[in-house]
Computed example of a mutant assay.
Amino acid sequence: MDFTLDETQRDIAGLAADIVRREAGPPGEGGYDEQLWRALGKAGLLSLALPPDLGGDGLGVAEVAVLLAELGRAAAAVPALSLAFGALPLDFLGTSDQRAALLPAIATGDAVVTAAAHEPSAPLVVHPSTRAVARAGVWELTGVKTAIPHLAQATHVLVPASLSSQTGIFVVDPKAAGVTVAGNTMRLDGVAVGEADLLRGGEPGEALATLHTYALAGALAFGDGALAGALALTTEHIGGREQFGKPLATFQAVAQQIADVYIASRTVHLATLSSVWRLSAGLDPELDIAAYWFAEEAPKALAICHHLHGGIGVDITYPLHRYYALVEEVSRLCTSN
């Protein structure tokens, strides 16, 4: 196996990093950096995995993972995880009408599609408590979904629900009648959706497994980038901050601690890269291994980064808190595996 990025992937990483440097700003009224998100769309980075007939490049999860890692490295204030929770599953599972209606809008940044993969005390739930009942020619959805990435920005949410004999995934408008949104939690009370809103199922459990696979792989790539970004930020800080007339990096205890963060970052990177490579090659991605290493190492590494920053690490005008929040979000997802 060769984990070296190919020319296309290196170009994606370079272009994404350049756009982030030029366009990134604080979150706007929509709760995210809309200027950056649309700049990424204009550059074609939100359509990497879309088919050419819908304006995409026909690439795959490996290229999307490269983009997510770069966005994580910058802790960019954009709905990045929607690419893994929404765009990739929709491209794979959507009907031709669903894909034609939503994928081009995702590519331009006009639509944000995410997924409600978690329920209370049940991350990446396999047997949803949310129910879909056929009544009067429509499906009625009832249940509670939690920890939905970018719910505040979402125009559509992929909602897994238990049918009479299997699990289905529905495309739901978060502003539809019967939907109540509070933070990243969505409550559904008899929400009416049609047969046209149901994604293709395949074998029992196949659609939900596909959603979980893309969601976890993308989250790990995003988290891998966030950990690398926190390491770079901390390395720069201890190299420039002086104590007793010497840079902090010259103190043995500090050097040992930043070395621990480096080892954790490289471990997470290797495990994530291996999983994404295997997924793109059609092999068992072994995501549980990468998820274990992330959940085990990344939060401890971020705690060290905070410690090495001292008081500045908890200042909301300094970016470290954004990396911490991203790593915690991905870590909670990983602990279900």
Rank of each mutant, 00 (worst) to 15 (best):
G86K: 05
D315K: 09
T267E: 10
A75T: 00
V171N: 04
W293N: 05
T210G: 07
A116N: 07
A177F: 09
G223R: 06
G86P: 13
L163F: 07
R266T: 11
A255W: 07
A16S: 13
E119Q: 09
A152D: 05
L283C: 09
I258D: 01
I106T: 02
P120Q: 09
S275L: 04
V261N: 03
A303W: 09
Y324S: 04
D2C: 00
G313M: 05
T213S: 06
R322S: 01
T235G: 12
F92M: 02
V138K: 14
V20Y: 04
S275G: 08
A217H: 05
V191C: 12
G44M: 14
G109Y: 03
S47H: 14
G310R: 12
Y292I: 01
I312K: 02
L54I: 11
T317E: 08
P160M: 01
I106Y: 02
S165H: 14
A13P: 04
L279N: 02
L83N: 06
R10C: 00
L67Q: 12
L102K: 12
G25E: 08
G240E: 02
W293C: 02
G60S: 13
A13E: 07
G94C: 02
L45I: 12
A182R: 11
K300P: 06
P204C: 11
T155A: 00
E236P: 00
A65R: 15
M1I: 06
E242N: 07
S121V: 08
Q9H: 12
G41F: 13
Q166Y: 11
S265R: 10
G202A: 00
P204I: 07
A271K: 01
P120Y: 14
A192E: 15
A84Q: 05
A221K: 09
P204V: 08
V66H: 05
D173L: 06
I238A: 00
S121E: 15
P149D: 04
K246P: 02
H306G: 08
R135K: 15
T4F: 09
A87T: 14
A253Y: 10
L67F: 11
L48N: 09
C334W: 11
E34I: 11
R332I: 00
E286M: 07
T250M: 05
H212Q: 01
A271C: 01
R131F: 03
K145W: 13
L270R: 04
A39L: 08
V64A: 10
A105V: 07
L220T: 04
R10K: 00
E70M: 12
G313N: 11
D110I: 11
I19K: 12
Y324P: 00
T272V: 15
G240H: 04
S121D: 13
T317C: 02
A115V: 14
E195H: 11
A221T: 10
F85C: 03
S275W: 03
V261I: 04
W277F: 08
P52S: 03
H118C: 11
A219M: 15
A80D: 05
R131D: 01
V113P: 12
P319N: 06
A291P: 07
P26N: 10
V254H: 06
A253H: 06
T185A: 13
F170K: 02
T267F: 10
V112R: 01
A111S: 06
G58I: 10
L199F: 03
A196R: 15
I12M: 09
